[in-house]
Each structure stands twice: as structure tokens, then as C-alpha cells.
């Protein structure tokens, strides 16, 4: 958790937010806190309620219960004040296929009553440059590839200087270079002081660009916080390489751990055990420091050939929170 942050520090704040479609609860009582200036990764499997949350954030859908405020103002009541400061890519890009890329951006910019007409051409040009689409600006969108449409969608979000960017699956359909460019773009936007809210199911991407993240599963928010704290609460794993697996196992059990033996050879086994949280959230009877474990093992005559404490990856954490495989929680 981000801890004690006041509403002013938050770019997006949801309290008890729920959305019901008929009998289905798409978003279930979530409390989201996106700090200003953060690059916030919004994770979750397909169908976990990410896009529905984004729709409520942008005033496209009304919340069934709870409130959501964006840039300190409640949505959708203050939508007309908030949205000009927000750039968004929602559920894939969408354009008029019979218009050129430039003409599409002109049209969307014209729909914003706050946009300045005199600077429109220059702003459209600049946005197209930022996403590397200048060469195809005059082509009809009908002839665009998926990646080009995606870039144009991002350009649309960048038409005006924005305080908050909401990018739903921004790298969808992009080639590896395009993905890299989007990462650079997100970093440069964050460097300019904007808050960037990126929804994604690509963990590697989030791990590379985000400072904070939240994980959705089946409509509920199951974790949120800084990336470091999320990784950490995923737990650390102890890996021990020893020929004396039996003795070592007994020692570890005595220390309150639950070792698991890997490897076929009984003589040189690999023992793994998850370590308690260093903050002491898991272990009730005190935290066992890794060095104390090694000392205890050596005291018991265990020949330690390898010892490592591995930090859990975000992927482990993600899978632990949202379930394995294709059986997406409903």
C-alpha cells in the first residue's frame, strides 16, 4: 500500500468502486490509489475488470457504487474540467477508416472544446512525430496496420499537454521496436511530470516501466503498491544445494520453514523453502535471517554447497494472485 497519501497526491482515487452489468459484478468494491507522477501499471488477466474501471475513470460508464476521482475531481460530475487534462487510449484505437491519420486527429481535437484551434495543425504534427507516424500521416486509416493504428491512438492521447495519460494496452499489436518506443515514450512523459496509468497483461512491460502497480483479479483489486513492495510481498525463496538433504530438511523445519526437496539424487539434493516476509508479516515467532540459517545448517554438520535467497518475480506474484493457466477466475 502507498500508505498515508492525501487526496492531493493522488492522480486517481477510487473508493469502494463497483460496477454491475445485470447480475454480473464486473468491478467489485475496489479502492485504487494512483500517486501523482507515478507510472502505474494496472495488471490483470483478460476480463478481470481493468477496462471497465478505466471506463468509469473516464466517465464513459457510471459506477454502480462507490466514487472515483481523477486529478482531484469527482467523475463523472466534473468530467468537462477533468478530461481536457487527460489523454486516453481505451480498449484499442478507433478511427474513421475513410479519413487520413492527420484528419482523424484533427477531428478528435476539434471535439475538445478546450483545444486551441490555431495551434491544432502544429500539435497534430508534433503528436504524429512523437509516435513516429509522420510518413503515414496522409494515408487513409483504412490502409493502416494494427501497429500503426495503435501509434495513432497514442498520438491522439498526446494531442495536448496532459497531466494524466490513461493507456489501455498501449503496446498491443506493436512490433518489438514499437514496444521499445512506447516504453521510451512513457518514460519521457513521466519525466515531464505526467502521471501515466498503463493497463496491461504483459508483466515484463510493467516491470520495466512502472514505479507502482495494482493487480486485478475477477473484478477485485488483489494487490497494489510500489513495484518493489509488490515483488517483496511475493516472498523470497531460499535455495540450498547440499548432499545432506535429510539433515538439512530437519534443521529447516526446526527453524520454522517448510522445505521442499527437488532433484532426483538423494545424495545431492536441492532444497527450496519460502522465506518469511522481512517485515515479519508472516513469521510470528521472529524473523530468521539468511545468515542464521546457514550458521544453523553448518552447526548441524550439513555440507552447504550452495545457498541463495531469491527475490520473487512479479510474474510469480501475478500468478499467485490471479491463478495459473487459462482458467481465468470469473
Amino acid at each position: 500500500m502507498t500508505g498515508a497519501s492525501t487526496a492531493d497526491d493522488l492522480a486517481i482515487e477510487a473508493k469502494g468502486l463497483s460496477k454491475r452489468f445485470g447480475r454480473q459484478l464486473a468491478v467489485n468494491n475496489i479502492d485504487l490509489a494512483v500517486p501523482r507522477g507515478s507510472v502505474f501499471g494496472f495488471l490483470g488477466p483478460n476480463g478481470s475488470g481493468k477496462t471497465t474501471t478505466i471506463r468509469m475513470m473516464l466517465g464513459l460508464a457510471a459506477a454502480s457504487e462507490g466514487t472515483i476521482s481523477v486529478l482531484g475531481q469527482e467523475m463523472p460530475r466534473q468530467l468537462q474540467d477533468v478530461l481536457p487534462r487527460v489523454g486516453a487510449l481505451v480498449e484499442g484505437p478507433a478511427f474513421y477508416p475513410f479519413l487520413s491519420g492527420t484528419a482523424n486527429l484533427h477531428r478528435f481535437d476539434a471535439a475538445d472544446p478546450h483545444s486551441v484551434r490555431g495551434t491544432r495543425a502544429a500539435r497534430v504534427q508534433r503528436a504524429l512525430e512523437r509516435v513516429g507516424l509522420t510518413h503515414a500521416a496522409g494515408k487513409k486509416v483504412r490502409a493502416y496496420s494494427l501497429g500503426m493504428k495503435q501509434r495513432l491512438g497514442i498520438a491522439n492521447a498526446l494531442l495536448s499537454p496532459r497531466e494524466l495519460l490513461v493507456l489501455d494496452e498501449p503496446t498491443n499489436g506493436l512490433d518489438p521496436q514499437g514496444t521499445r518506443e512506447v516504453r521510451h515514450l512513457v518514460r519521457s512523459l513521466a519525466a515531464d511530470g505526467a502521471t501515466v496509468f498503463v493497463s496491461s497483461h504483459l508483466l515484463a512491460e510493467v516491470e520495466q516501466i512502472c514505479t507502482h502497480a495494482a493487480v486485478m483479479s475477477a473484478g477485485s483489486l488483489v494487490a497494489q503498491g510500489t513495484l518493489a513492495s509488490l515483488r517483496q510481498s511475493g516472498g523470497r525463496t531460499l535455495r540450498l544445494l547440499t548432499p545432506d538433504a535429510g539433515t538439512a530438511s530437519a534443521v529447516l523445519v526446526r527453524l520454522g520453514l517448510t522445505p521442499v526437496t527437488d532433484g532426483a539424487a538423494p545424495t545431492t539434493g536441492v532444497l527450496t523453502a519460502s522465506l518469511p516476509d522481512p517485515d515479519g508479516a508472516v513469521a510470528a515467532d521472529g524473523v530468521v535471517a539468511p545468515e542464521d540459517i546457514v550458521a544453523a545448517l553448518v552447526d548441524a554438520g550439513v555440507r552447504v554447497r550452495g545457498f541463495a535467497v531469491e527475490q520473487g518475480s512479479l510474474e510469480d506474484r501475478f500468478v499467485a494472485l490471479t491463478g495459473e493457466g487459462f482458467d481465468i477466475a470469473q
Partner: peptide
Amino acid sequence: LGTLRYLLVAPA
């Protein structure tokens, strides 16, 4: 076309 959401987010 899907452009409705972008027009409303613009915000039109």
C-alpha cells in the same frame, strides 16, 4: 466504429 468513446473522452 468505436470513435464514440474517443469523442466523449475528448470531451465533446
